[in-house]
Structures are given as structure tokens and as C-alpha cells.
Design a protein around this nucleic acid. Sequence first.
DNA 1: CCTGATCCATACGCCACCGTATGGTCATAC
DNA 2: GTATGACCATACGGTGGCGTATGGATCAGG
Lengths: 192, 192
Amino acid sequence: MDVAERKRLTARDWTVAALNALAEGGLAAVAVEPIAACLGATKGSFYWHFSNRNALLEAALLQWEQVNTEEIITLIDADPDPHSRLRNLLNLILAHPADPPVDRVMLTLQADASHPLVAPVFARVTRRRLDYFTELFTACGFPPGAAHRRSLLAYTAFLGHAHLASTSPELVPAGADRRDYVDSLVTTLVTP
Amino acid sequence: MDVAERKRLTARDWTVAALNALAEGGLAAVAVEPIAACLGATKGSFYWHFSNRNALLEAALLQWEQVNTEEIITLIDADPDPHSRLRNLLNLILAHPADPPVDRVMLTLQADASHPLVAPVFARVTRRRLDYFTELFTACGFPPGAAHRRSLLAYTAFLGHAHLASTSPELVPAGADRRDYVDSLVTTLVTP
DNA sequence: CCTGATCCATACGCCACCGTATGGTCATAC
DNA sequence: GTATGACCATACGGTGGCGTATGGATCAGG
């Protein structure tokens, strides 16, 4: 939670902390004073690195967009086989909540999706992810319409899975059950 | 938004307004004074009907649980054919956001799912909905394991669909596309 | 060492919301 | 008609977060 015993903070420290707060308590938790306390500092430090709360929010959102979408796509794109890419991606994003990367920010942000700073980032991320899924299904040989429909199902299943895993982790398959579930989902998405 | 020209308010008026606020702006929007203003009243009225903000929240959550889960289940259960029930249910909950009943409260509440008043209601609703899906697939002849897996896919697809429809309605199929999408989803869920 | 720049703490005013206290209004019972 | 109780407005103190101002600390270069 805290940053050990560092005396001087950097702007990045604040955006990381803000992103954690965002994942934990939603947009309302991105509050200067609580985050300062959590970092062992005060507002005086914050207002040196950022002009105001919105600037922090903006930086945190951009960082989220970068880390949690673009980096994952470049990671997955390393594999040359489209079927492998699809399987790897689903296996990654349908991870059990015990593993970290269920995208909690996407969920907590949903409540404030109409916020002027959130909306554009949100729209870009959604569009990018859906387009990538469509690209994957197209590479697997599906015609445009079918590829789009399947990408929709894949992405909504991911979102719902993240939602469920985040609020009722005990209802989400784990271990061998999870493997079976992912396998059957991949099969469902790739056949006919 | 407002309640026209009624002079006296009832407790139900407040819970309805609270539920609207919840769907619009999340848990933080369930604030006494703004809702009072929205109802054309003041706090003095509110604290006559409720002991405090938590009481209002609790009432609103119970009402949501009742209207948005139990009533839908009893509505669907009127049909004797399990396949029809499944189709009707999916057709209802995968409605286009232009139609009302996409469950926005479920989404905005997600951000504060760990709130002491929200968590139990949330857990009950999730469990109830998943159990009902499982019950449907069992009635359709699936063995327990498969029924559970399919209920999981159906419910997560619904959640993700609601999420997507709420934040990027233009990316969700409408009209004839929607019918095709629901049809293909029903087919996918009911075969093998 | 001294100085300037960087980084941060403290103190302040502001606003939004919670909850309380108190008194006013209005309908109905009698 | 007036008394009672249901219903509501106003005014108040308390809290927590935002943003500003100002000065203290710390470090690098000369």
C-alpha cells in the first residue's frame, strides 16, 4: 500500500496511487488528501506535481489505457497463430481474481462513465478492445458480420466475468474448472 | 424527474427518487439534499420519513432487489416451456438501451459492491439470478455441470452486454441485428 | 558554506453534504 | 373553531475534501 521509506515522491508515484484508489473505491476515491495520507505525504506535495485533482485523474486514466489495453495487445500479438492469440487472450483476461489482472478499473469506472474526463478514455478503450477481438476472429477466417458478432460475445463475456469475479469470486470457476470453462468458451467462439 | 405538483411526499417517493439517483450517478448520488431538491422539498421532509441516509439506501436496495430480479423471474416463470422461458428471458435482459430495462443499478453499484449495505443485497441478487439460469438449463435437460457452465456464460454475457450498452450504446446491435444476435446466442447456449 | 531550486508541511477559506433542533402549516376530528 | 398530529422549511453545527499561500526543509552547484 505505501511506498516504504522514500522521502521524495514523483508524479508517477501519485498516478500509481490514484490508479490503485480508482480500482479500489471508484472515482470518488481519487481524492487528494486520502491518497496523500496513503503515500505518507500531504497536499502540499501533491500540488507541486499536479495542478489539480483533474490533472491527476487524467494522468491516471491515460496510464490505465496504456497498461491495461495497449500493452496487453502488443503482448498477445507476439504470437503468429491467430487461434493461439485468441486462446491466450481469453486465458489472460478470464483469469481468476486470485490472480491480479481482472480489469477492476473498467468496472469501477462504469459508474462514472459519463464524467467528462472518463468518457473519451472509456470510449477509446472499449472500441480498441472490440476492434482487436474482431481483428482476431477475422484472422481466424470469419467473414465481417460473424467476426463482429463473436467479438461482441467474447468481450461482453469478459466484462461480465470480470464483474462477477470482482463481486462474487466464489461463484467463478477456479483451478481445473476454470480451464474447462475457458476451453469450452474458446471452442464455442471458434466453431461454426 | 420531478413529481409534478404534489405537496405531500411519501416514503416511497423518496426510495423511487433514490433508486433513480443510484442508477444515474452511483451510490454517491444517493445524497439527501440533492434528492430533496430534485423532489422539490428539503431535508426537513426527508428526516420525517427516514431516520438517516442509510435507511433510505437500504429501502432503495430492497426495492431494487424486488423489482429487478424477483418480479422478472415470476414474469418469466409464467411460461410453461423451458426453452421459451430461456428465450424470453434473454430477449428481455438483452434489450437495447433505448428500451428501458437494462439493469443500470447493477452496474453503478459494482463500484461500491463492498459497501456494508450493498454487499449482502448484491450477493443475494447475483446468486438468485445465476441459480435461476441454472434451473432453466436444467429444465432444458442439461446435466448439473453443463447447466452451471452455461448459466455462467449466459449471465456474464448479460452483465457485459448491459455494461457495453450503458457506456457505448452505439456499439450494441439494434433492431434486426439485435434479433439475430439474441437468436444466435440462444442457439449457442441450447445446443450440444 | 552559500544560494537557488526543488520538494513538502501547515494553515487557511470555501463548499457540499449529514444530521439536529425548532417552529410553522395544514387537514382533519371533535 | 380549535386542537392535535402529520408533514415540512429554516437555521445551525460538524465533517471532509478542494485549492491557495506561505514558509520550512533538503540537495546540488559553485
